[in-house]
Design a protein around this nucleic acid. Structure first.
Lengths: 194, 194
DNA sequence: TTGAGTATACCGACTAGTGAATATACAAGC
DNA sequence: GCTTGTATATTCACTAGTCGGTATACTCAA
């Protein structure tokens, strides 16, 4: 029984992360991941019982770093909640311009595994999106916005729409429009609008 | 050189449509499509020069039927533009409850082909989404809504977000929330709000 | 007789996953 | 201080099957 904190396991997940995000789940072979991690496929299968397990581990490992990234952008922005929310989209549009950007790994994996709704990786993606929505609702609530949960959900919808539109059009304007709409929604529910 | 209007070609595209939508691009083999269409792989390759070409043909064939579906829901709904827009989401939430529903084929294909940005199928998806946005802007404009193009884009973002959220959470509430937000945005830009 | 359309049979490359052997480390018995 | 036992961790070689795509030959209608 391999250890969950094994450094070898981490090396495998790191290699899988790079390849899965860059190429997509279905286009990456277990052999390619093993080679990238600098070990044999048999060792990989010692640490993970299947490719599906490894896909789920890849997304689980992305949950906290991704949330921290969003929270960092939110915290660093000056101004009210509207400006802080819009800052997330502005930063998103910036990184989405990089040629290595390939959309949201959680959404892309869910799209690729649409025919397997109970797949552990889809569940990991659902957990992550829920974590983000809850974090955002708490931040909005702390700033006295009315109906913070409904607002957080609307912002999440705009953000996932922005991810999708950017992926299909390759045009960051869609992310900008989503950020603008999100900021407007926040302002409509804020006090002290002087 | 095969005919573009060949009934054999149509049979192939129909078979590909069912399989690609149900299983995803990468999980469907050319052999499986040929078998479903009731002919051999060699015949398929007589009509399409590659699998990539067939993927693009699949999405191109979905453009008009999809637009007609949306327009049908919009036209059939009673009330103002806000109610008509919300009706699209309500109908979407209804069909999304069906176990055969597997998200938006255009978005799922773009997600699966994220590592090939210039792929003809991604371009076909981009064209379709643009067609929908333009149609919606025209309908909104005809009803005297202010800033119809910006509004149409925001509604498109909410809709693509709804597709994505439904795919990852399997919870139609997200589509309902998107429809509610879209209707609110329309009302905020409508005259005669009595 | 020509050529569009279809069928059989095949190619080399790649796929996820496994069997059997082995290297390494550390503990217990003497 | 040795030796043996055991669990963890790793490798090589392999299976059985699938992949997209093609070479060749056939049918049938104009």
């Amino acid at each position: 029984m391999p250890e969950a904190s094994s450094p070898t396991r981490k090396r495998i997940v790191d290699a899988a992360t790079k390849l899965f995000y860059a190429e997509g789940i279905g286009r990456v072979s277990v052999d390619a991941i093993a080679e990238k991690a600098g070990l044999t496929k048999r060792t990989l299968y010692y640490h993970f019982k299947s490719k599906d397990d490894l896909i789920a581990a890849y997304l689980d490992a992305r949950d906290q770093p991704n949330l921290k990234q969003m929270a960092g952008w939110f915290d660093a922005a000056e101004g009210g909640a509207d400006r802080k929310v819009e800052a997330i989209f502005t930063n998103l549009a910036r990184v989405a311009r990089h040629p290595k950007w390939k959309g949201c790994g959680f959404l892309r994996t869910a799209a690729e595994l649409a025919s397997m709704p109970g797949h552990p990786a889809v569940k990991a993606g659902s957990r992550h999106k829920t974590n983000f929505e809850k974090w955002l609702a708490a931040e909005l609530s702390a700033r006295g916005v009315t109906a913070p949960h409904m607002l957080a959900r609307e912002i999440v919808l705009l953000m996932d729409g922005a991810f999708s539109s950017m992926l299909i059009h390759h045009n960051p304007d869609y992310i900008g429009a989503a950020g603008h709409a999100a900021a407007t929604l926040v302002r409509a529910r804020s006090q002290n609008k002087d």
